[in-house]
Nucleic acid binder design. Structure first.
Lengths: 338, 338
DNA sequence: CATTTTATCCAAAACGTTTTGGAATTTTAC
DNA sequence: GTAAAATTCCAAAACGTTTTGGATAAAATG
């Protein structure tokens, strides 16, 4: 199975390489008739342009990169599957490709991955996620003028392009829902304090409390690592206090799943004796026992839209909206509403 | 931030492009001393070879591809996250890259994705998953002599290279565990009958029944789609019969999670009134309510080993083992052992 | 000392595209 | 009927590497 090059197509059609190339690329300086024959014979011969050659000449990779920011080997947050699926679908629908790898946040490995991809021209743009408060990635991308979009902004004064979730309004709605049900001791299980989502969600939790005229109690908050196991351990600690919480708000769904497990081990019936809520809206939460109340983000759609924004930046088109804000959707289920 | 090419390094060191290239690639026809200066100035200047140029010349992409075989938009099976993480980690540790996209199984889109990547030379090899009984992908890959490895073999007489799970022994263990607990009406929720894993797991289920001297009852099996929602619907159907099952074995964990939810809606206490078991061993299953009994596959490690096999094929090394069989590990938890 | 071997280096070709800057032909305008 | 404009095509350069096939100088051999 020899590879078919543009030269073969040129020979077959009796035209020059130039004309074949331009015919296929839809330039208007080639006659309709010749274009038709070129297109059909190219199709018939199964010609597909060599990517490396095209990239080299065009100085474009037609590829965008995403590095999954995860430390544990064998991570399994469905959030990422959904996100990657969204990226992949939109990217390939635009005839681009998606390069993926994973690297622990803020590690040396992360740094070499980013620089390798960008310096070697393997990618034209980058999608960033799980932004840290001080994040060298955004600084580096800005400095090298690499097109990028992100799901959160950092603290650095770099102009942000991407999509954010309106955590404050969502969290307010959730806490109101809980206080309406009479909850007074509402705990919070968060993540690494360097994470922007942690800051956002924790601040929103505080705002929610104060809106409900509840005072903040340090012993009602703990930090986990965004996994079920972390949620389980943190919830165990919260529940072992003399005055345990009656509701637990979690930074994400995985944490909440672990927290529900911990409640059960403490012989508390989730939804009756204690309320638990998550954040993200991953698919399984509809089928946990009990089904989990969560602030649903349209992760798949966010991913697709991020790609659209990034690609129009790469193509030097002007963005209609550089900063998009989406409202999460509060899904009230049995875990807070037994 | 101009891109630094090999020409710049050559100029700086006063050497030729050739020598710089060969120095960096470790050829032995360059003096130790010059190599040292080349390496250090290249490093200092931040030179990273352009990937497109290198690929074009070498006729190698140093990239391998994986197409997630999934139909629903916004899939979220943690199985895939874990698999992709394994692929990505091993691949980047060998200085290769991983190209990812998704396409519905057996769709036209799938076909164009595969051919586009392979014909255009974007990837040197492919990882295949969720093989169908008749699978054009394996035929195509064999025909085009594209290096590939897979997690299941198809029926076609193509010599298989990859890693399989020993479903039969695992399933036997599981069914024995259930019959020992006195279960006689053991149901099975499967997936698309074209899938190799469906055939394997269903056959293993039948073998397990007959080993326990239980007769197969068609009304005890149903087909879902490997999602929680599908598992829920299928289980509802099973439970609505006049003589419902006392145990349900599921093709994967997601299905089992949905099935547990259905049991709960039927006011059956999972682990007491009915047993439910899954397959895959995704991380959350430790924290479902109740924790799920499952046949755990070391997905992350399988992914890494698949990559190692694929890369040695690409490098024309001889494989010590072309066909590896791994035993799943039966994790007995409360869902069958209340 | 002349010849061969070894150790270093390099010029030029090649990989398969896209793009530039015309050239040749045909059509339109006057 | 001639000049200008439009249409259609193409040769050659360029993208940044790696590799081939020597060239040169130094060392070893006789």
């Amino acid at each position: 199975m020899k590879k078919i090059t543009i030269r073969d197509v040129a020979r077959k059609t009796g035209l020059s390489i130039t004309t074949v190339s331009r015919a296929l690329d839809g330039y208007d300086d080639v006659a309709e008739e010749t274009r038709a024959t070129v297109v059909s014979t190219a199709q018939k011969m199964g010609y597909i342009p060599n990517r490396a050659a095209r990239q080299l000449r065009r100085q474009q990779a037609e590829t965008i990169g995403y590095i999954i920011p995860v430390h544990t080997v064998g991570f399994a947050d469905p959030f990422f599957s959904e996100f990657i699926a969204g990226l992949g679908d939109e990217i390939s629908s635009q005839n681009y490709d998606l390069l993926v790898t994973s690297a622990p946040p803020a590690s040396e490995e992360e740094r070499t991955q980013y620089t390798r991809w960008i310096q070697s021209g393997k990618v034209d743009g980058i999608i960033v996620n799980r932004v840290r408060l001080q994040d060298w990635r955004l600084q580096y991308l800005a400095r090298t003028k690499t097109p990028h979009v992100s799901m959160e902004r950092s603290l650095d004064p770099i102009n942000f392009i991407g999509i954010e979730t309106d955590v404050t309004s969502g969290m307010l709605e959730l806490i109101t829902h809980l206080t309406n049900a009479g909850h007074k001791r509402i705990a919070y299980i968060g993540g690494d304090s360097q994470l922007k989502i942690e800051q956002d969600r924790f601040q929103a939790y505080l705002a929610g409390l104060s809106a409900a005229h509840l005072s903040f109690r340090p012993e009602m908050t703990t930090q986990a690592d965004l996994t079920s196991e972390g949620g389980y351990q943190s919830a165990i600690r919260l529940l072992s206090q003399s005055k345990p919480p009656t509701a637990i708000v979690c930074i994400n769904d995985l944490t909440a799943i672990g927290a529900m497990h911990a409640c059960h081990d403490h012989h508390l019936k989730v939804g009756h004796d204690i309320a638990v809520a998550g954040f993200d809206g991953i698919a399984d939460t509809a089928h946990t026992q009990p089904p989990l109340t969560t602030l649903d983000q349209p992760v798949y759609d966010i991913a697709r839209q991020l790609v659209r924004m990034l690609l129009s930046m790469i193509h030097n088109e002007t963005l209609s909206e550089k900063q998009v804000m989406v409202k999460p959707n509060l899904l009230i289920r049995a875990s807070t509403n037994g």
